[in-house]
Design a protein around this nucleic acid. Structure first.
Lengths: 344, 344
DNA sequence: CCAGATCGATAATCCGTATTATCACTGTAT
DNA sequence: ATACAGTGATAATACGGATTATCGATCTGG
């Protein structure tokens, strides 16, 4: 039957003690612990006979690694809607886990409060894993601090402001500055940045990038916060402003905005150029591939796993330099960012 | 700092024993175990002070369910290419796991041999989970038998021929028969079924569905096996045959075939109707949404989890009727299956 | 004033694995 | 004969939490 096989059981079969089984399993061989090949073989045969697998809980309790990486997401990660954002990250995690020989444990059991999963709870299972990858556009600062305090090895995907939080993210500041530079270089005399407020570090970093570009080029950039006024009003403002270029925080904002502009007789990119300060892969406006950025999401996940391995394996905690990493994105031309018409 | 807080620590602070802490935490109150409210309160305060979280590994070791459902896939499940097939299934699994309060363990560590993961291996981690869901278009029969023999609770997604293998799949036979019936009803006098051989139970079931439809309608259906001759040749044959309708095994075959036909001047659906004996969601040919089927993949995953729960929880094994389930798909009209033109 | 009931809490044990200290035994050199 | 090194394996213990048996103290009734 499917009863669970323990080392004790193996020991009984092989006619040795439980300790011996453990020693054989872990290939231990000290000066005071010696087991001849004959006995080892006997134990190994018993193990194969019974398809023994060590109980991960017991291993953990005894202080060992389990080769299990936890994955915590604040929203369902495997739903169709989430795939745009989570898809490449999960893909990278799977590849990385395969490389490291780890299994991935998705904490789908976390209780949902106010539409978001809570990490901490009476029955938190965080510790079943050796370490944990955190995914999600918005994370709870208190929970992050608690993780740090409790010494749980973890890495957040996306830059974080909280102290001592290991992360791997995108260098949005540099990337967005580069994007805005390219808008200016095309000859646009002014642009608007349509964003969603300062809800996350990545939003803040993008704004910093805008600022950086503004400080070194003559092109003025108007900031428009969509969380302050409805998108139709924003479209109205832009249509009336005579601006020739708009940068949107992400592709969804860009698509919605292009639609609103279209309804007001302003077409992209003919009358107005549109660039996205985020991933544009797979996004288009009226058949034109969006101009914007490419974020190496698969690589980010891989790098996050690498950092996590350091945290888990390392005897002493690595420095901040090693555990707070920003990767570079790249600007992709696309078809919605073009030279402004001579007259507008 | 990040030391872990144990019940022992709580006990020390509250001036009680570790046992008392455990009893308070779990609200135990037997006839021989009584703890007055005053003491309970003292313990609770200590717990709050220290932000204590129980070590799940220890809990599990002490005999609790670990609430982990394993997910085994023969190919990487989280890659972009796999999403078409795995996406909805994973989505359903996540929803179901959330409902059941389980975590999902992806066996990404399984060693890859010949491009496919092996389930059994020296370091099989299968037993880490309470039970296991198997995903994949093609599964290894020997491994399935071994799972049955070892009494590992598991459920395969997709019908299986191997005895005693619990599964949840689609009733392709009925579904495909229904689809072919609808082709005949539109007035087509003959059709071709373009398939990929008999590589899997679902392929076999579809062929059985074709057979069933053939036996009760006058419309002849020609079988064309793409694994026997290249697709261009198939397209050539069909173009020359004067047939007005083609049923393709899946959407990818349909798209490829439509392309080949197009190159030979035969357009879908004007000259020839095209229907798919599989999921058509998100697939189109020259702007026309494909006619075909919708498979309730999300529900399948949920049902698979439900069956697995039965296998895990049940004292005695449920009957075959309960563990071998076929769900109904539905025919979706789409835009590529139309009445044949009067003259061809 | 003492037997028995009741109360409050704890020591002891178990779960499965890893590790360390220790032991019994064999040979070998002194 | 005796001390000593080397060999092969095990008993004992730790890990953190759940549970059970048990114990001392207090109370109750006769």
């Amino acid at each position: 039957m499917g009863r669970k096989v323990t080392q004790r059981e193996i020991a009984r079969i092989a006619g040795v003690s439980q300790a011996t089984v453990s020693l054989v399993l872990n290939d231990r061989d000290f000066s005071n612990v010696r087991i001849p090949e004959a006995t080892r073989e006997r134990v190994r045969r018993a193990i194969e006979q019974t398809a023994y697998v060590a109980d991960p809980a017991a291993r953990r309790l005894a202080g060992l690694d389990n080769k299990i990486i936890g994955v915590f997401t604040y929203e369902p990660a495997l739903s169709h809607e989430s795939m745009d954002f989570y898809g490449p990250l999960l893909n990278g995690l799977e590849q990385g886990a395969e490389r490291l020989g780890c299994d991935l444990l998705f904490f789908t059991s976390s209780p949902v409060v106010d539409g978001k999963r809570r990490m901490f709870d009476k029955r938190t299972r965080l510790r079943l894993a050796d370490g944990c990858i955190l995914l999600g556009q918005e994370m709870d600062g208190d929970e992050l601090r608690k993780l740090v305090d409790e010494g749980v090895p973890f890495v957040a995907v996306g830059r974080r402001d909280e102290p001592d939080v290991p992360y791997v993210g995108i260098d949005y500041r540099t990337l967005v500055a580069e994007l805005v530079d390219s808008v200016a270089e095309l000859g646009h005399r002014g642009a608007a940045y349509v964003h969603l407020g300062r809800t996350s570090p990545s939003s803040v970093d993008r704004l910093a990038g805008i600022e950086q570009a503004r400080s070194r080029s003559a092109m003025p950039v108007t900031l428009i916060d969509v969380s302050q006024q409805p998108l139709p009003a924003v479209a109205e403002t832009i249509a009336a402003s005579g601006l020739t270029a708009v940068v949107a925080q992400d592709s969804f904002v860009a698509e919605a905005l292009a639609h609103e502009l279209g309804e007001r007789g302003v077409s992209v990119p003919r009358e107005i150029s549109l660039a996205v300060a985020g991933e544009v892969e797979g996004h288009a406006v009226a058949g034109h591939r969006l101009s914007g950025c490419h974020l190496p999401r698969i690589e980010i996940a891989g790098e996050a796993l690498a950092v996590l391995q350091q945290l888990i394996g390392g005897a002493e905690p690595p420095s901040d330099v090693d555990t707070r990493v920003l990767l570079s994105g790249s600007v992709v031309p696309g078809e919605t960012l073009v030279r402004p018409e001579a007259v507008r």
